[in-house]
Design a protein around this nucleic acid. Sequence first.
DNA 1: TTAGTTACTGACTGTTTAGTCAGTATTGGC
DNA 2: GCCAATACTGACTAAACAGTCAGTAACTAA
Lengths: 222, 222
Amino acid sequence: MSAPQPAPRQRRKEARPGELLAAALDVFVEKGFAAARLDEIAQRAGVSKGTLYLYFESKEALLKAVVQESMVPLIAEGEDLAAQAASDPAATLQHLVTRWWREIGSTKLGGIPKLVMAEAGNFPEVAQFFFENVVLRGQALFRRVAETGIAQGVFRPCEPMLICDLAIKPLIFNHMWCQSFAHCDTSAIDPEVYLHAHLDVLLNGLLTHPHPTSPLPEHPQK
Amino acid sequence: MSAPQPAPRQRRKEARPGELLAAALDVFVEKGFAAARLDEIAQRAGVSKGTLYLYFESKEALLKAVVQESMVPLIAEGEDLAAQAASDPAATLQHLVTRWWREIGSTKLGGIPKLVMAEAGNFPEVAQFFFENVVLRGQALFRRVAETGIAQGVFRPCEPMLICDLAIKPLIFNHMWCQSFAHCDTSAIDPEVYLHAHLDVLLNGLLTHPHPTSPLPEHPQK
DNA sequence: TTAGTTACTGACTGTTTAGTCAGTATTGGC
DNA sequence: GCCAATACTGACTAAACAGTCAGTAACTAA
């Protein structure tokens, strides 16, 4: 039986915010915003709850900061990439979707929309912030590609925002679904298989002259 | 200034459960499960909180009862309808989706998946109950249609569950989205327009020999 | 009218947790 | 080594809320 020595205190002003945000992301995604306890976030970051309040004003401000720091840079990066106009809208659409999967859908960041949407009614400011800084800017990326594709006659003519919604919403939802029912849905389709099937059917349904596509998966799960 | 006369007490053993469930559905969908207060549910049903506990064991049991009473009958109804085998799988798929929209997507019942998914981590029993009694049975409906369609060569060959997921998940999510961002997304696409565009692109992308389809909407919102 | 039954009430309890702050311990300058 | 300056702590508080139960009043049958 060793004496329960209290962990030695450290002063690390620079590193704290990042560590707290990382811990907060973990706990928020695991438990949801309401059920996340600030004590647990602090503990995972290796500090006490008091320290949390040295860096963030409130629980809500912490969530806002998580969104700000983790999602907004990715959007900004996407905007830079999209600025280099690609000539092939179908390929660009595929590229954007794939990038979403790599950067967000396959990481714990994918849990943020669920978080924000679940609490949108109780914390409208967070929802608004997310909507303006992530959703609208993300939609703009897709929208430009859709407009180009329609103008070129590659995509069937329609409201560009439709293409945007049809392309990305199913994937966000599938992530939420898998996250929520992981313990129930033992024979769920692998999210990456879903991603490819979705892209295939989407493009096939959207293109004016569908390419011959690879066959859809017959037995996605072993 | 009238005297604040306490509303006269009433004894209505038969009607209470239904009224409480209706009030609970309202408040759960509005606030989410965690943020819903039992006092408010009771108040909306015109009773006190104590009465609530005469009819339901706990808050969690109340949610389970809401799912049981509002969703399960609809699934059962759908199973009856699907038992009358339809010869045209594409039309049947369209019919199932449209029925989902009419009975669930366009009503407050559409808020239940959001509710259950948001709290799945904290109340796994509720998620399990929903999954087994609603999701699995709903999937089975779609799956049978998908299998028939593939066997007839009407749908492209693939894992039938994929068709099921591709057909319904986007719609569930779009409902959640609109509900969550109603106050932010002032130029959102009308859900019914989204429904038709989705069905169009889905079938176009899924059929081995796509029908000539009506054009996609150009300006869905006025 | 009265007495018995029970649906219903609402004040109360216990618990949980966001947010506070007086005090402590580490650091860096001298 | 000593002394600020300040990053950090954790016990505390106030509030919110699920769940309880002794008491109340609506109904019923005789």
